[in-house]
Design a protein around this nucleic acid. Structure first.
Lengths: 197, 197
DNA sequence: CTTGTCATGTAAAAGGTTACATGATTAG
DNA sequence: CTAATCATGTAACCTTTTACATGACAAG
């Protein structure tokens, strides 16, 4: 129901984009916002153009097409943000696996944990790289949009770091049944981290 | 493709569950693992029972049915964990909104941020409650399963706390354009949090 | 005695994936 | 000259949502 909004959000920054550029955005595992397949993006673009939310900025003989957001699209984005409630439902295959991890033996669990660690470390490096790029890029173009993007990346970096630290202690949960889980994660869970307000 | 695995994972702890209990699990916004609607759960259960992954533990005259996992189901879970790769693709409506937040004015942004803050605070309280319940519950039943669950809740709590702290500083990104984003989130981003290894 | 929660399903519509098909351009 | 990447689309299939339908039971 929201690929439409993900596309509008990407186009709202003003730069005309072609279908392929959007496909790359939505197949990107670093940017965990909205996933979509190539075929879905192309057909959604056609639908949105017909609906007047976006329009063709350019098209060459090969069919290569760039799109920009229209005024109608801009209003749709504002409507979505202000008049509909966020959907907090998630499908997270990777976490689902960790919830089921106790069924396998300790050695297998260790392998799976290490694989995820390696994925998250690579993702963290990538996140930091992209954040650095934003700092220079944002100075030219719409600063407000780029500052927003930077902020989201900051959260992703903090959460990736938390995940990596958690994965480092996770094997102990299975391998040291004599220690309580609270004890194992003692330094992560040092009570109400300024939850006050 | 994975509601099947989410159901098997829930049943793997050995307690027979009925459709409604599973519906509650998958519509729960605290436990951000796998979301599914009621009708989907009921029809998936029928399909899985036919496929021999689960079986009926009891059924009364009213049609109220509880299911347990079979040996085939247990093998399917292990196959999934060890022989297929995790799918890291995500659709996160709430984050998508934050990425587009710069399009609205500061007052509206503030309202939206506060609404999310209130959601995350409630979720955090709920997470802490459930974690406390696990500590006592886990002593009786399969300790390994319950320790795993506790660990996942620990990560969720840490990440919810990080999100709340981030949301507290987010308004400054829009309202203080003279300050750099790095500066605003300085205490969150205090460099490589033991990413070493 | 009626509202809310527990409990189970079916059918149509919308959303999303996979497989297939095609061709230009770039880099080694 | 060949493999990878850029670039666009269609069709069949599968997954998920929405709307509808039904009824027991408990609490106020």
């Amino acid at each position: 129901v929201a690929l439409k909004h993900a596309i509008l959000s990407a186009l709202s920054r003003g730069v005309p984009l072609n279908g392929y550029a959007l496909v790359t955005v939505f197949s990107n595992e670093t940017e965990r916002l909205w996933h979509a397949s190539a075929s879905q993006v192309y057909s959604e673009l056609i639908k949105m153009e017909k609906a007047g939310l976006i329009e063709i900025a350019s098209r060459n003989e090969l069919g290569h097409t760039t799109y920009v957001i229209t005024e109608v699209g801009r209003r749709e984005i504002e409507h979505w943000l202000t008049l509909t409630d966020p959907d907090h439902s998630i499908r997270d295959d990777s976490m689902l696996r960790f919830m089921a991890l106790w069924v396998v033996d300790d050695t297998t669990a260790r392998h799976l944990i290490q694989a995820e660690q390696s994925f998250q470390r690579k993702r963290l490096l990538r996140l930091r790289e992209v954040l650095d790029e934003f700092r220079t890029k944002g100075e030219q173009q719409d600063a407000r949009a780029w500052r927003d993007r930077q902020a989201v990346y900051v959260l992703w970096i903090v959460q990736a770091e938390a995940m990596i630290a958690w994965l480092e202690r996770l094997p102990d949960v299975f391998e040291h049944p004599e220690r309580s889980v609270a004890e194992i994660f003692a330094n992560s869970l040092r009570e109400p981290v300024a939850a006050g307000r």
